[in-house]
């Protein structure tokens, strides 16, 4: 039986879809059978981050309403057979997704895949409860900013009130230079405030925009620290005990080297 993880956040724009894309692709590269579901109905994005936007014919609403078969709605990743994408619909609204049908679909997917990653819409409005209803684990993405952490805390409260206790945190876009100077909260500060488990930390990477421009997620750029961060997280989700990355401020020489 596969495991279902929902990737969510309180605040929008903190990197949920990018995280989902990298974890799903990272798992696929590690040999697991993975499906990534974009549940941000009306605001589809996971397809572009994965570079699969030209392959989409049917979306999740087509599938749930019986206009498409499972095999034609699951879009095959161009890099291999292990990853499939189930795209969000652009023309529907969040209310159009039937929770019962969606939960039935998840049951079916769990039998066919090792991991199901659900990219949830931001916030706590409609669609949010669908996104975590069938999940074994919820991964919260937060950046080291007060608004992101405050909203993450609200989401943790709502999840706990709904009986979800397997909640872990990815701290995204950490800038080690700023943390060292005391200008940015560290992952320890954030963990102490939110009181949930740390799943991983991901550095702020100026190359991220390039990865999205190309539709080739960071995890494919294997020598990068960011790819390493995502790979570590996928290994933890597979049950391995992997120490947290130690992010160090870049030395002057390293910065110079990277400019060349």
């Amino acid at each position: 039986m596969g495991k279902i993880y929902t990737i969510t956040s309180g605040k929008g724009g903190v990197g949920k879809s990018t995280t989902t894309a990298n974890l799903a692709l990272g798992m696929a590269i590690a040999g697991k059978k993975v499906v990534a579901i974009d549940l941000d109905i009306g605001l589809r994005n996971l397809d572009m981050i994965l570079g699969l936007e030209n392959r989409i014919v049917y979306n999740i609403i087509d599938l749930l309403e019986g206009r498409a078969k499972l095999n034609s709605a699951l879009i095959r990743d161009k890099r291999g057979d292990n990853l499939k994408l189930l795209a969000a619909s652009q023309t529907n609204s969040k209310e159009d997704l039937s929770k019962e049908k969606f939960l039935d679909l998840l049951k079916l997917l769990k039998e066919q895949f090792d991991f199901v990653f659900i990219d949830s819409p931001a916030g706590i409005e409609t669609g949010f409860s669908n996104a975590f209803a069938g999940a074994e684990g919820v991964i919260i993405v937060a950046t080291p900013e007060i608004s992101s952490i405050r909203d993450a805390d609200r989401v943790v409260g709502i999840l706990e009130a709904n009986g979800k206790h397997n909640i872990s945190l990815i701290v995204n876009r950490i800038k080690p230079e700023m943390v060292k100077k005391g200008e940015m909260m560290s992952q320890d500060d954030i963990l102490q405030i939110l009181a949930i488990d740390l799943l991983g930390i991901v550095p702020d990477d100026p190359k991220m925009i390039e990865y999205t421009n190309k539709g080739e997620p960071a995890v494919l750029d294997k020598i990068s620290v960011t790819a390493n961060a995502y790979i570590n997280i996928t290994r933890r989700l597979m049950g391995e005990d992997v120490p947290q990355l130690e992010l160090k401020p870049k030395s002057f020489l390293r910065k110079l080297f990277e400019r060349l």
């Binding site: 805390d153 005391g182 200008e183 909260m185 500060d189 102490q192 405030i193």
Partner: peptide, 15 residues
């Protein structure tokens, strides 16, 4: 006074 510390304190209070 470091702003990260201030952020942490403000979050503790509001949360």
């Amino acid at each position: 006074r470091k702003s990260a510390k201030l952020a942490t304190e403000r979050l503790h209070v509001i949360l």
